[in-house]
Design a protein around this nucleic acid. Structure first.
Length: 282
DNA sequence: ACTTCCCTGTCA
DNA sequence: TGACAGGGAAGT
């Protein structure tokens, strides 16, 4: 469930904690996490020094010297933690750990084992990593305008909720921020994307940019004990209007928030503020 | 473009 | 004990 704001906070945390460290060992007890296998990771990474940590959508890009990039996707439950020494009690569900020359360890824990890591040559990640090659623009990229968003939405007849979750349309939105931005924009999650009016798309575009920025600055949303690399919990969950709020009154109109399924995903909305508008597909 | 699968803790 | 949580890849 880490989405763009959470992954960005992990990036900032890791950036402060691991840049400059040199890998002396790589270990794993769930090798499936490592695309290409543990042996390849050891061969490539031992002796390499971390030079930076970047992010693209929900992907973390851990940069090493000699043009190596570790592409890491946390999926549902992936967490990084830095331990000052190897003796420190490992977190539950630790599956991969990197030991550094100073004795510290970068640990990766993932209860559901959905997360994946892949090593690529820096600069080739966009062509090599499936998911990155077709990834849509960053929400804060000035080239992502309401006009380009409108065009993208009008090529899709699927419900707007499903289209927001499509990383090829715009990068970084997951289930929480899809529901929240639709509530803010007073749009039904079931509204076919192609039926959105210009003004509605402008509203949604503004809210996506604003909401992701605010959530990022508040440290993201903590759901299911999500922790950033520094071990802090996010504070954005105090500002959720619909996600996980089923049965409580809508902050805008008092109507009970409902939960349903859209495209096999749990979807929270206010039936009064977010009515489905009957419109013909263009 | 839609469905299924990967995973396992939590909850009804 | 079975349904559910869900991002993204793979399959249809």
């Amino acid at each position: 469930m880490p989405e763009l704001p959470e992954v960005e906070n992990v990036r900032r945390g890791l950036s402060k904690l691991v840049v400059g460290k040199t890998v002396t060992a790589v270990d794993a007890n769930w090798p499936k996490t490592l695309i290409g296998g543990l042996t390849a990771f050891r061969t490539a990474l031992i002796g390499r020094t971390i030079t930076g940590v970047d992010r693209r959508g929900k992907y973390l890009l851990i940069r090493f010297d000699q043009d190596l990039t570790l592409v890491s996707h946390l999926r549902m439950e992936g967490k990084y933690q830095l331990a000052a020494s190897a003796d420190q009690e490992p977190p539950r569900f630790m599956h991969v750990w990197f030991t550094f020359a100073d004795g510290s360890q970068m640990r990766y824990a993932d209860m559901r084992k959905f997360g994946r890591m892949q090593l690529v040559l820096t600069g080739t990640e966009n062509s090599t990593v499936s998911g990155l090659s077709t990834l849509g623009p960053e929400p804060d990229d000035p080239s992502w305008t309401a006009a380009t968003f409108y065009d993208a939405l009008h090529r899709r007849k699927a419900p707007i909720k499903s289209v927001l979750l499509d990383q090829n349309v715009v990068a970084g939105i997951g289930n929480i921020y899809a529901d929240e931005t639709l509530w803010l924009s007073q749009l039904s999650p079931l509204q076919p994307a192609a039926t959105l009016k210009r003004a509605e798309v402008v509203r949604l575009h503004d809210n996506i940019i604003q909401e992701l920025a605010t959530a990022t600055e508040l440290g993201g949303t903590t759901v299911h004990s999500f922790l950033d690399a520094g071990g802090h919990t996010g504070r954005f969950q105090e500002q959720l209007h619909v996600y996980g709020q089923e049965g409580t009154p809508c902050a805008r109109c008092g109507t009970e928030i409902l939960k349903t399924k859209v495209g096999e995903r749990g979807t929270h909305f206010c039936p009064h503020c977010q009515p489905l508008r009957k419109r013909r597909l263009p």
